[in-house]
């Protein structure tokens, strides 16, 4: 395989196009995004309004209003126009936090903005998931995807910088954030020139707690570890979807504008830590203020 820069030999400007020239070129390319075809039922990302509405009216509606009784604060911190990167804590077996944040934006935001959720690309290898997740607004967390959504299409994207480490942590470690990756999300926001909106979710940890993980399945399949959740094993594989009715509180914090070049690793790392610290502090504050896990 030829190294990354080889095709540059074909362009007259040579390898220089990689740094400053690229952003200028992208600015021009925004005008050339494909137009909408009203007859289509899916977007170019594979998102289906029909499936989304169906899930929204049934499962999401029930969970949001009745089961988790979501309470939302600071929705005004989500910009009404333009792209923004939402960054949230992540927890629980089959985490319910992403659909609840998306629902909160649809219900409470004056513009009822729709949300794209960046998920690990591994989902594309699983039959069923690979079909369903794009239909309800999930995209693979690839830097190029974030750039196109945030910058070119000016959309909202939710990302969980803890990644797989978030849902993997056990109940005893609840509300203690894992490492925020290598700060890829800050670099993405910088490249796309959009604000970062930190989001704190309280309740997801208790809704789908994981008490332990069994290594048996991992030994068999190489990747999955069997979570021990409250209604396991008597509900079988369905147990991960049986959420406990914990009270959800979602708080959108003030947007963070980072001033640095995307390539400046030091600044990116500092900003990453800053965002993480703000989310962590707010989480502790919210958990400290709550009287009951179930009633809030």
């Amino acid at each position: 395989m030829p190294p990354r820069t080889r095709t540059d030999a074909l362009t007259p400007d040579g390898p220089a196009a990689g740094s400053g020239g690229a952003s200028v070129a992208l600015e021009d390319l925004r005008r050339h995004l494909p137009g909408l075809e009203p007859e289509r039922r899916l977007t170019d990302w594979g998102r289906s309004e029909r499936v989304e509405r169906l899930v929204d009216r049934t499962v999401a509606d029930f969970l949001y209003h009745l089961w988790f009784r979501c309470e939302v604060e600071g929705i005004e911190n989500v910009p009404s126009a333009g792209g923004a990167l939402l960054v949230s804590n992540h927890a629980g077996a089959l985490p319910p936090d992403a659909p609840m944040i998306a629902k909160a934006l649809r219900e409470e935001h004056p513009r009822a903005r729709s949300l794209n959720v960046a998920v690990e690309p591994v989902f594309k290898a699983y039959p069923g998931l690979s079909m369903l997740l794009p239909k309800v607004g999930c995209v693979a967390a690839h830097p190029a995807n974030l750039q196109r959504l945030l910058h070119d299409e000016e959309a909202l994207v939710l990302t969980f910088p803890e990644g797989r480490k978030g849902p993997r942590k056990l109940y005893k470690d609840r509300y203690r954030l894992r490492r925020f990756g290598h700060g890829e999300f800050v670099a993405s926001a910088l490249r796309a020139d959009v604000p970062i909106v930190p989001v704190c979710v309280v309740g997801a940890e208790e809704a789908a707690p994981i008490f332990a993980r069994l290594d048996l399945l991992k030994r068999l399949t190489g990747s999955l570890r069997l979570p021990v959740v409250p209604n396991f094993p008597h509900l079988g594989p369905l147990a991960v979807a049986g959420y406990l009715p914990a009270k959800f509180r979602i708080r959108f914090l003030e947007p963070v504008q980072v001033d640095a070049a995307p390539g400046d690793r030091g600044a990116v790392q500092t900003a990453t830590e800053e965002v993480r610290a703000r989310v962590q502090e707010t989480l502790f504050e919210m958990v400290g203020a709550r009287d009951s896990v179930w009633l809030g």
Binding site: P2, R4, A140, H142, P143, A144
Partner: peptide, 29 residues
Amino acid sequence: QDDPAFFTEDMERPHPPRTPLEKDIVEAE
């Protein structure tokens, strides 16, 4: 599975080619 949703001209494939045809095309390019 590790592909971006839209390949731009500057991108490389995330994994080396596996099928003979793809290897040939990468080699020809």
